[in-house]
Simulated assay, not measured.
Amino acid sequence: MRLLCLNAWGGVLHEALMPWIAGVGADVLCLQEVVHTPGAGKDWLEYRDGAHVLPQRARMLDELRAVLPGHAVLFSPAGSGLLWEGDQAVPSHFGLACFVRETIPVIGQATGFVHGAYSDHDYGAHPRPRNAMVLRLWAEGRPWVVAQMHGLRDKAAGKADTPERAAQAERFAALIDGLAEPGDAVVACGDFNVRPDSQTLRRLERLGLSDLVTGGGFAGTRTARYTKPDRFADYLMVNAQVPVRRFEVIRAPEVSDHCPLWLEA
């Protein structure tokens, strides 16, 4: 089983991201910050949040489908809001995508909001709604549970623990626990948006999971595109049933402001 976890940053580094992701050879890809704008007439639109303006790849989900033709895709938007083409507002969706090689059966799944609730007209006030996706797969002759979450962004608290993050961790853990059965290999990953000493990791440890990022001595999960001091955001946790053969925080090429996390098991 080869698994990739990545916050894809809305496709900002599209020219580097697409050929790399097409050739990486992952069986399962857990992607956060995926844009889906059905019927978009332009390749690029703008995300605007006050002074924060970011280009977004309008048909990112469709382009990922095109470069991963042997994979089935599940897309779960955390919200639907507006991107912009000049003065024209364009409705768009933003959330999680999981690509699973078609030879791997999906034998169970659960999705749900870990913070807030879905809105169909705007992305909402910060901290915005966040969701999680959990799949039960049959691979390597056994069941696997693969879970991903994009943790909430809190402008005031940064990546520090908050009551909202504690509640988010409980909901994520409940989704995993509700789908996993005794003896399953379990992987939980994503841009959790927390520090290594956070309550979120401690809560997932109570499910029998251990983190390969901090446990492997890696110095962080952010690329040079990210200029703030907190260098950790992304984590990949496994239980004892996962036979880890290789784990890597990939530094090059840079395909996002987050480093891809790569697991071979």
Rank of each mutant, 00 (worst) to 15 (best):
M1G: 04
M1H: 14
R2Q: 14
L4E: 00
L4F: 06
C5F: 12
L6S: 11
A8H: 02
W9G: 01
L13D: 06
H14A: 15
A22Y: 11
D27W: 02
V35H: 08
H36A: 13
H36P: 03
T37F: 06
P38T: 03
G41H: 09
K42W: 11
D43P: 08
L45W: 10
R48D: 01
R48K: 12
D49L: 09
D49C: 11
G50F: 01
V53A: 13
P55C: 04
A58D: 07
A58R: 12
R59I: 01
M60T: 03
L61N: 03
E63F: 12
L64H: 09
A66K: 08
P69H: 09
P69S: 10
G70Y: 03
H71F: 10
V73M: 14
S76A: 04
A78R: 06
A78Y: 07
G79I: 06
S80T: 15
G81N: 00
G81W: 07
L83T: 04
D87N: 10
D87R: 12
Q88L: 11
G95N: 06
V100N: 02
E102F: 05
P105I: 00
G108D: 05
Q109W: 11
Q109I: 01
F113N: 08
V114M: 00
S119H: 13
D120E: 15
D120F: 08
D120Y: 06
D122G: 13
G124K: 09
A125T: 13
A125I: 05
H126E: 13
P129Y: 11
P129T: 11
N131A: 12
N131M: 10
N131T: 10
V134R: 04
R136S: 01
R136W: 05
G141Q: 05
R142P: 09
R142A: 15
V146R: 09
M149S: 15
M149L: 15
H150L: 03
H150D: 04
R153D: 08
K155E: 13
K155V: 09
K155T: 03
A156S: 11
A157E: 14
A157R: 10
K159G: 01
D161F: 06
D161E: 06
R165I: 01
R171F: 03
I176K: 13
G178H: 12
P182W: 07
P182R: 13
G183L: 01
D184N: 14
A185L: 04
V186Y: 02
V186A: 03
V186G: 05
C189A: 15
G190N: 03
D191K: 04
N193I: 07
P196D: 03
D197K: 12
T200I: 11
R202Y: 05
L204E: 00
R206C: 09
V213G: 15
F218C: 07
G220S: 12
G220N: 05
G220Q: 08
T221L: 13
R222V: 08
R222I: 05
A224F: 11
K228M: 12
K228A: 14
P229D: 12
D230E: 15
F232H: 14
F232K: 00
F232N: 02
F232D: 02
A233R: 08
Y235V: 01
L236A: 09
M237T: 04
A240P: 00
P243L: 02
V244Y: 02
D257V: 13
H258P: 10
W262G: 05
